[in-house]
Computed example of a mutant assay.
Amino acid sequence: MSRFRFRGAALALLLAATAACQRGALQPTAQLTNTAQPMTAAQPADPKVEAVVAPYRLKVKQQMDEVIGHAPEAIRKNPGESPLANFAGDIQRERAARELGQGIDLGVMTNGGLRAELPAGNITTGSIFELMPFENELVVLDAPASVVQQLFNFAAPIHMAVSGATYTATPDGKPTDIRIGKEPFDPAKDRTYSIAISDYLASGGDKLEFFRPLPPRHTNVLLRTAFSDYVRQLTKEGKPVTAKAEGRVHF
């Protein structure tokens, strides 16, 4: 059973249990007795439980199987500049700008923050859940130049791209010729840069500890929702879903 199917079944069971509670079907007992039995793969399912769960499982499966877009080729993540991370970072900047009504300088997504690749062919709602299975929110950080420098210091040794910027990584892993929005970046300049990022990475996840002291501005949009909405909009416009490594990092 794939990770997605397991998650879908668990969600269906949770929905069923919730519905039962609301109907009053689940009542507390005065005393708990140890009636636990060992579970085996051969143990048959309880027909009564299956009858309750089945409609929810079907509903979840129908939702997850909905085709929302088409990719001519798989959008993958790889060491260095990643097509999938470029895809995610660009969507983050675009959606954060729309939600907050202002331009966003940078978008940050690490390969570790993306749990699966987008397949070639039909992209379903389930594909997006596989890509982003967590309830991560899109937030915006307002970072001083010193923190932005730390971001590129982190990115350069692994040739990680940053949406909205280009730079050169030296052989010893130092960032040079950093350009943000085509403007040269000066770490000594007294300026604040806006960064669209997940709340997980903003809190220091994936070794981005230098972001932790910065208070996030909330968009109240899940990353998963931002990705799904973007794919749906492309489909509405008759466009395929594509992304590529396009030389944001030079070395």
Score class of each variant (00 low, 15 high):
V49M: 11
A188L: 12
V60D: 07
D190M: 05
I197K: 08
Q37V: 14
M39K: 13
N122V: 09
P28Q: 13
K239D: 14
A16D: 12
A17E: 09
R5T: 15
A196L: 10
N86T: 08
G107T: 04
R212L: 07
I91S: 06
M132G: 02
G238Q: 04
D46W: 11
I104G: 11
E237P: 04
A42L: 12
M1V: 06
R232F: 03
A88I: 01
A71G: 03
R95A: 05
F6H: 14
T35V: 10
A10H: 02
S127I: 03
Y56A: 08
R7N: 13
R95I: 10
V231F: 08
A41Y: 00
P216K: 02
A88C: 10
A51T: 11
D190E: 10
L14A: 14
P79D: 13
Y230W: 13
E66P: 11
V231K: 06
L131W: 03
F129H: 13
L234H: 11
Q150R: 13
S82N: 06
Q37D: 09
Q27I: 08
V140A: 12
Q92L: 13
V108W: 00
V162T: 10
A143H: 00
Q62A: 13
V108E: 04
N136I: 06
V231A: 00
A97L: 03
P175H: 06
D90E: 15
V148L: 09
P175L: 02
T166D: 09
L84C: 04
N111W: 05
R191C: 07
L208P: 00
G69F: 08
P157T: 10
E94T: 14
P38Y: 01
T29N: 13
L32R: 14
R232A: 10
F227W: 09
A202W: 01
I75A: 09
A12E: 02
A143W: 02
E130F: 00
E237T: 03
D199A: 14
H159C: 06
G24A: 05
T235G: 07
R98L: 14
D186R: 10
S163C: 13
P47W: 04
P47R: 10
L208S: 05
T242F: 12
H250F: 10
N78Y: 03
Y193C: 03
P28S: 12
R7H: 14
R3Y: 05
A165T: 10
F6Q: 05
A9D: 09
E135G: 14
P28H: 03
I178R: 07
R23F: 00
G164H: 01
T40C: 11
Y230C: 05
T242Y: 11
M160C: 07
G205M: 02
R191L: 05
D105Q: 08
G205H: 07
I123E: 04
R217A: 08
D46N: 13
F185R: 13
K59T: 08
V231M: 10
A25H: 15
E73S: 15
Q22T: 07
L58N: 11
P28W: 14
L106S: 00
I123Q: 01
V162A: 04
L208R: 02
L131Y: 03
R248T: 02
